[in-house]
Structure formats: structure tokens, C-alpha cells
């Protein structure tokens, strides 16, 4: 999962201090893996260097967690591009897909669109596997079936997420 894009996405709804960013991240995405402060600073200084965020103010007392960051126009474009690009179908996508769905909702983008785009990308690979299965021997068929069932499971989760978008929208914006 891309921490940089996630922090950028969180900044889209308004400027935040470093400590506030960490708290928002942990609350929404860090269930079993809270961010270290070190990760926040290294990520933010990379985003600063690339012009995706700017420092909007510094609270008295110094310390990098006291810096207030704001997203730049280039940053918004970067988040939009990330959300619109489907993930390469592969195992263990859940946390990335979850983050994308939540961020799409937080930033007022269409999560249904994101889900449809990802389904399309999955189907592209599933068509290749289905075609291979048609012409393959039994071993090929079994291997392709295994991959097909896993990709389908991803998609069924995506579909369920789509069906729950309304509820999710209310929860994440609460």
C-alpha cells in the first residue's frame, strides 16, 4: 500500500499537522499497523521535495510534528491518478483496495467507478486464464481455475464493498 498517496489523500480535505496526519491514518487505515513518526516525516519530506505538498504553517515549539502541511495542485492530480489506475491483479490486494475505496469516499470521488475499473482489470486477466484453460491439459486447467477463483473472490469483495458504499460513506465522513 502506498503511504505517500494515502497521506496525500488525507490532506485533500484540508491542511493538517504531522501528528494529526498520523492520527487520521492510524484511525482509518492503521488497524494493526500504526505508522511510526519516522515514517510520517520521511514520507512528508519526500512529498515536499516532489512539490506534492507545501508547508502551510509551523506551530510554536518547533519539531517536525508541528509543521502544518497542505496539498498542492500537483498533489491533487497525483491522488486522482492513483485512484483512477487499477491495481495489477495479484494476491493480498485487500489493504490497498480498502484504502482506495475509503479515500475515494473521503475526497468526494466516485467509489463505484473505482470498483468498476478494478473489475475490468481483473476481468482482463481472467479472460486470458479462461482462454488458456480452453486449450490446456488437465494440469493447466486446475492451475488456471485456482487463479480464477482467487480473482473472483477479490471481485466479490469489491462488489460487496460497492453495495455497502452508502453505509461506508456515512461512516468515513462522520
Amino acid at each position: 500500500m502506498s503511504i505517500g498517496h494515502t497521506l496525500l489523500g488525507l490532506l485533500e480535505s484540508g491542511p493538517r499537522h504531522g501528528y494529526d496526519l498520523k492520527r487520521a491514518f492510524d484511525e482509518k487505515f492503521g488497524h494493526d499497523r500504526p505508522l511510526h513518526y519516522g515514517q510520517v516525516y520521511s514520507t512528508m519530506s519526500r512529498l515536499l521535495k516532489n512539490g506534492l505538498v507545501e508547508v502551510d504553517g509551523i506551530e510554536a515549539g518547533g519539531g517536525p510534528e508541528r509543521k502544518r502541511y497542505a496539498i498542492t495542485e500537483a498533489g491533487v492530480t497525483d491522488v486522482a491518478r492513483w485512484l483512477a489506475t487499477p491495481e495489477k491483479p495479484e494476491p493480498y490486494l485487500q489493504s490497498t483496495l480498502f484504502t482506495k475505496v475509503v479515500l475515494a469516499l473521503l475526497t468526494g470521488r466516485s467509489a463505484a467507478e473505482l470498483l468498476d475499473t478494478q473489475r475490468s482489470e481483473h476481468l482482463r486477466m481472467m479472460r486470458v486464464l479462461t482462454e488458456r484453460k480452453r486449450h490446456g491439459d488437465l494440469a493447466d486447467q486446475l492451475i488456471c481455475d485456482h487463479a480464477l477463483f482467487h480473482l473472483e473472490a477479490d471481485l466479490r469483495w469489491l462488489e460487496l464493498a460497492a453495495a455497502r458504499l452508502d453505509t461506508l460513506a456515512r461512516e468515513v465522513t462522520a
Partner: peptide, 16 residues
């Protein structure tokens, strides 16, 4: 509504 069935198609449209 099944992806494994849709994988037999050339392309898909989504109705919402």
C-alpha cells in the same frame, strides 16, 4: 453477475 462467467466474454458493460 459472476466474473468467471463474464470471463468468457470479449468485453463487459456495467449496469447501475
Amino acid at each position: 453477475h459472476e466474473a468467471r462467467v463474464a470471463a468468457y466474454s470479449d468485453r463487459e458493460i456495467v449496469v447501475r
